[in-house]
């Protein structure tokens, strides 16, 4: 089923608003990770505002789906989404990375809506396997969505987790890989080649799908499809690092960002122009 333009546009518009929040947050924080935050922004928007079953008033609700961010450094986009969804007041975004504040530089259990403590790459998928196993033992229908980066597929533990999800045929586990091809010091294929992740997941017994991680219709249809699959599913989301900011796109040097007033202004202007197209 194709989604209506109205529905898709509402989500797209929201993603620009979240990105504007992120630029403002990082400007106030003086630094933070942006490349991956923007490559995964469209999927984060779909998950939080369309796909997952969540109750911001009751973050520990038993019936909720679990959204986990294994590549925790891209948390500015997560925090922007959680705030907009109502998990905590939007004012908290102003204190990102500051002492005595709620929003830590990497997600930590205890922040409303956060399901895993991260910051060390490669551990989130195993934690997701743990939650998925618990749900399976208790025959519960909740889904577990684990967002991962391509860079953390260089950690051996990621592959240990992939193997174990297959062993227990965890049909409640969905992995999204932000395949943006960049990491800190360069392009992934130069640093440590990852190759064809779809084929690798398949050879580990998973159903794997290559999708365009910026196409809302494709993203939503994929999430609909995976709900019907009786196996662990990997969505390899082909994305663009720094998506929507002309001077950042695809460049690994924007993995993280020391805010610069000129760049902040330019980025905000470009996002506002996109937003204005909806009015």
């Amino acid at each position: 089923m194709d989604y209506s333009k109205v529905e898709l546009d509402a989500l797209r518009k929201l993603s620009y608003e979240l990105k504007i929040d992120v630029i403002k947050m990082l400007d106030k924080a003086d630094s933070g990770h942006i490349g991956g935050a923007f490559s995964i922004a469209d999927i984060v928007t779909c998950l939080y505002f369309k796909v997952a079953n969540l109750d911001p008033q009751n973050p520990d609700w038993d019936e909720r789906d679990y959204i986990m961010l294994s590549n925790g450094h891209v948390c500015p986009i997560l925090y922007a989404a959680l705030a907009r969804k109502g998990f905590f007041p939007k004012e908290e975004l102003n204190n990102l990375r500051k002492i005595d504040s709620l929003l830590q530089g990497h997600p930590k259990l205890g922040i409303p809506g956060v399901e895993n403590t991260s910051g060390l790459l490669g551990q989130g998928l195993s934690q997701g396997v743990g939650i998925a196993l618990g749900l399976t033992m208790d025959s519960k229908p909740n889904k577990v969505y684990v967002i991962t980066s391509d860079g953390e597929h260089q950690e051996g533990q990621t592959w240990e987790a992939i193997m174990s999800a297959n062993k227990w045929s965890l049909n409640n586990l969905v992995v999204i890989v932000d395949r943006n091809h960049v990491q800190i010091d360069g392009n992934t294929e130069d640093i440590m080649p990852l190759g064809n992740l779809k084929e690798k997941y398949e050879s580990f017994g998973w159903i794997a799908l290559d999708i365009n991680g910026h196409d809302y219709n494709e993203i939503l249809q994929t999430f609909d499809f995976v709900k019907k699959i009786d196996q662990p599913v990997a969505i390899i989301a082909h994305t663009i690092a720094g998506e929507d900011i002309s001077f950042m796109e695809r460049l690994y040097k924007y993995h993280d960002w020391k805010d610069d007033p000129v760049e902040v202004e330019k980025a905000l202007k470009e996002l506002q122009a996109e937003l204005d197209k909806f009015n």
Binding site: S31, H73, R97, G105, H106, K108, T117, S118, G119, L120
Partner: peptide
């Protein structure tokens, strides 16, 4: 020393 990155790093 990682300061703003928080406890995990």
């Amino acid at each position: 020393h990682v300061g703003p990155d928080g406890a995990s790093a």
